[in-house]
Amino acid sequence: MHQGPTVGLALSHALRAALFDGERERELAAAGTVLDCGDPGALGAALPDVDILVTGWGMPRLQPHLLDTAPRLKLIAHAGAAIRPFVTEAVFARGIRVTQAGAGMARPVAEVALAMTLALLHRVHRYDHAMRAQRQWPVVGVVTDHHELYGATVGVVGASRTGRAYIEMVRPLGARVLLSDPYVTSDAAKHLGVELLPLPDLLARCRIACVHAPATPATRHLLGGAELKLLPDGAGLVNTARSWLVDQEALLAELQSGRIDAALDVYDHEPLPADHPYRTLPNVLLTPHAAAATVEGRLRQGQVLASEVARFAAGLPLEHELRAGDLDRFA
């Protein structure tokens, strides 16, 4: 008889296939008995027998009434970084432990931020928009001066895992990196090879501002109208983190003026409405909240999840455990 915990996979079949290759499926099976809970009906039926629940996008939030049906539940392992849509304070109150696979997402999101940085510097989005609008060749008067990353001043707002991965990418390419993060010490900044500055000073000096801060109550509209006005004319804003961090109305006003450019992967309302003004602006580069969704990134997330499940089953410390106080930080 198979020993070990019962592991419920509350994942769509498509997401399960993206996260777990054959090796990771075998690792899960070695850790315990695996149950497929890929639809809400299956999840409700399986919860009474589940010791470990692996959650993903599209699954219901674990409200108290669901937890009441899961007396054996001891660990929730979430496929993404943001846990608040799935995990409530009631989870921690019941002594259920929580871990997540956000570490697997840092590399692809940082790469997209780098790609967006290069696109904004070289005005790729403006050229593309102009050529699709069937302007005469060569494109004249639609693109401002464009620049190289080498020697450019790049401001990083938030030294999160993704922020640090981004710094590790742009520094070897010759960028001068500024950082604003109240939790980073001067020694840590020196180790990262960046100049630590208050946010207003960073914004006033950078050609590209790249947002990587966490979405917490304190960071709501961290970049509001006053902060965005500090960006120099022709500067660019990259946001692959959360729209929460930037006042979208203030950003739209700046973009409609043509004074700055932006590359955005996240929005207040998703999917982005078909009639949203962002879609018509030549100085805006848009992607559909897809920065983390690489093949390799998904498999890396699955590796983190399988490893955490195996460690828990073996009674070993978790490497990515979250506490109740982290709910806001990983919103």
Score class of each variant (00 low, 15 high):
Met1Arg: 11
His2Met: 11
Gly22Gln: 10
Arg26Cys: 04
Ala29Met: 03
Thr33Gly: 10
Asp39Tyr: 05
Pro48Leu: 10
Met59Pro: 09
Leu62His: 11
His78Lys: 08
His78Cys: 10
Ala79Glu: 10
Ile83His: 06
Arg84Thr: 12
Arg84Pro: 03
Ala101Gln: 01
Ala106Ser: 14
Ala106Asn: 15
Arg107Pro: 02
Arg107Ala: 15
Glu111Met: 09
Thr117Cys: 13
Val124Glu: 03
His125Gly: 15
His125Leu: 10
Arg132Val: 01
Val143Tyr: 02
Tyr150Gly: 08
Gly158Cys: 10
Ser160Ile: 02
Gly163Arg: 02
Arg164Asp: 00
Met169Arg: 15
Val170Glu: 00
Ala175Leu: 11
Ala175Arg: 08
Val177Gln: 06
Leu178Met: 10
Ser180Ile: 02
Asp181His: 11
Pro182Asp: 03
Ala188Ile: 01
His191Arg: 15
Leu192Ser: 07
Val194Asn: 07
Glu195Leu: 13
Leu202Val: 05
Ile208Asn: 08
Cys210Val: 13
Cys210Gly: 05
Thr219Ala: 00
Leu222Arg: 08
Leu223Cys: 05
Gly224Met: 07
Leu228Met: 10
Leu230Cys: 09
Pro232Asp: 02
Gly234Trp: 07
Gly234Ile: 03
Gly236Asn: 08
Leu245Gly: 01
Asp247Tyr: 01
Leu251Gly: 00
Leu252Asp: 00
Leu255Cys: 11
Gly258Lys: 09
Ala262Val: 00
Pro273Tyr: 06
Thr280Pro: 00
Val284Ile: 03
Val295Ser: 08
Gly297Arg: 01
Gly302Glu: 03
Phe312Cys: 11
Gly315Lys: 11
Leu316Tyr: 02
Pro317Phe: 06
Glu319His: 13
Glu321Leu: 12
Leu322Cys: 14
Asp326His: 14
Arg329Ser: 06
Arg329His: 11
